[in-house]
Amino acid sequence: MTDPAYLITDTGRKLAYHQSPGAAPGVVFLGGFKSDMEGTKALYLEEWARKAGRAFLRFDYSGHGQSSGAFTEGCIGDWAADAKAAITALTNGPQVLVGSSMGGWISLLLARAMPDRVAGLVTIAAAPDFTEDSMWGGFDDAQRAELADRGQVALPSEYGEPYIITRRLIEDGRDHLVLRDPLNLPFGVRFLQGNADKDVDMSVAMRLLDHSTGPDMRLTLVDGADHRFSDPACLALIARSVEEVLAGAVGL
């Protein structure tokens, strides 16, 4: 594994990244909550991009992977700002964003904040508004009281150590919701979702499709696919979806 390069943002955060040169529009991978850029999907897409001669960028949000900061200090607004900084500083022109889980939410925020830099969108088990609808909405009275009193609450995770959910994460999330206001996606969009996903229910994907407007949106449900969405068939579907979006992008 090669060492990453680093970007120092205007906020002073040090973001680790790997970048491959190639044709435009480039592809940017946006990882999930407490994930990093060394995951199966990111590395698969990087290899696909190299073979296709396509520019590609993967990076770690602050508090994730090899970037600076503590995970518990971050929030959706911080991580969206990290993504915006990376795209602005490290890429040229519109990019196809591939957002996994929380990265799907962040990709939607970027599409709203910098539409001129988005050539298309592929989401994988997108989790828009999850801090409000899944976390806060799923807390019982005791958890809500603990969050108010202690400023954090621990949630079990099947991926390892418990998730520490902070009051700041919940409160900041409310400033970045995307399913409450109109969401226009004026480019090719592919929403991918497994029906065996225990972390993001299929109803979230249906709600996202129904809520969004755009000229070329498709939702693909994969029988038996879980939240990881990383078996060979799912990985191939991700690559095909990126190719479809690229084929429809302006300038190709």
Score class of each variant (00 low, 15 high):
Asp36Pro: 00
Leu179Pro: 01
Gly53Met: 06
Ala239Gln: 07
Val178Asn: 04
Ala70His: 10
Gly99Pro: 02
Gly120Phe: 02
Asn184Cys: 14
Thr11Met: 13
Phe187Gln: 07
Lys198Arg: 11
Ile106Tyr: 04
Lys198Met: 14
Leu109Tyr: 03
Leu43Trp: 12
Ser241Trp: 05
Pro156Asp: 07
Leu155Asp: 11
Val153Ile: 12
Trp136Val: 14
Ser230Ile: 12
Thr9Arg: 00
Phe59Glu: 03
Val245Phe: 04
Ser100Ile: 03
Arg180Lys: 13
Met1Asp: 10
Gly39Asp: 11
Gln143Ala: 13
Ala154Tyr: 14
Ala145Met: 06
Ser20Val: 15
Arg207Ala: 12
Ala125Asp: 05
Trp48Ser: 09
Gly77Glu: 07
Arg58Cys: 10
Ala70Ser: 14
Gly138Trp: 08
Glu244Pro: 00
Val222Trp: 05
Val178Met: 07
Gly63Phe: 13
Thr2Asn: 13
Ala154Pro: 02
Gly137Val: 15
Tyr6Met: 06
Lys34His: 06
Ala49Ile: 09
Phe191Glu: 10
Ala205Glu: 04
Leu246Arg: 01
Thr220Gly: 00
Asp141Trp: 11
Gly93Met: 01
Asp181Glu: 14
Asp181Tyr: 11
Val245Thr: 08
Tyr159Lys: 07
Ala111Asn: 02
Thr9Met: 03
Glu46Gln: 13
Phe33Tyr: 11
Asp10Gln: 11
Gly214Thr: 03
Val250Met: 12
Leu90Trp: 07
Ala42Asp: 10
Val28His: 03
Ala142Tyr: 06
Arg180Ala: 15
Asp197Cys: 08
Tyr6Asp: 00
Val204Asp: 05
Val28Glu: 03
His176Ile: 06
Asn92Val: 14
Asp231Gly: 03
Met206Thr: 15
Asp201Ile: 11
Leu121Pro: 01
Ser107Asp: 05
Val200Tyr: 06
Gly12Val: 11
Leu185Ile: 15
Arg117Leu: 12
Gly32Trp: 01
Ala125Trp: 09
Ala49Ser: 08
Gly77Lys: 02
Thr123Ile: 11
Glu244Phe: 07
Val204Gln: 03
Ser67Glu: 09
Ser203Asn: 05
Thr2Asp: 14
Leu7Met: 07
Ala145Glu: 15
Ala145Thr: 12
Ile164Glu: 10
Ser62Ala: 12
Ser68Gln: 08
Tyr6Val: 09
Met1Tyr: 13
Asp199Thr: 14
Arg50Cys: 13
Leu110Thr: 08
Ser62Thr: 03
Gly103Trp: 05
Glu146Gln: 14
Met217Ser: 06
Trp105Pro: 00
Asn195Asp: 14
Gly63Trp: 12
Cys75Asp: 14
Asp223His: 13
Phe29His: 02
Ser230Lys: 04
Ala145Asn: 09
Glu161Ser: 11
Gly63Asp: 07
Asp3Val: 15
Glu46Met: 14
Leu108Asp: 04
Met202Val: 15
Ser35Leu: 13
Ala42Leu: 04
Lys84Val: 13
Met206Tyr: 15
Gly138Pro: 01
Arg190Pro: 05
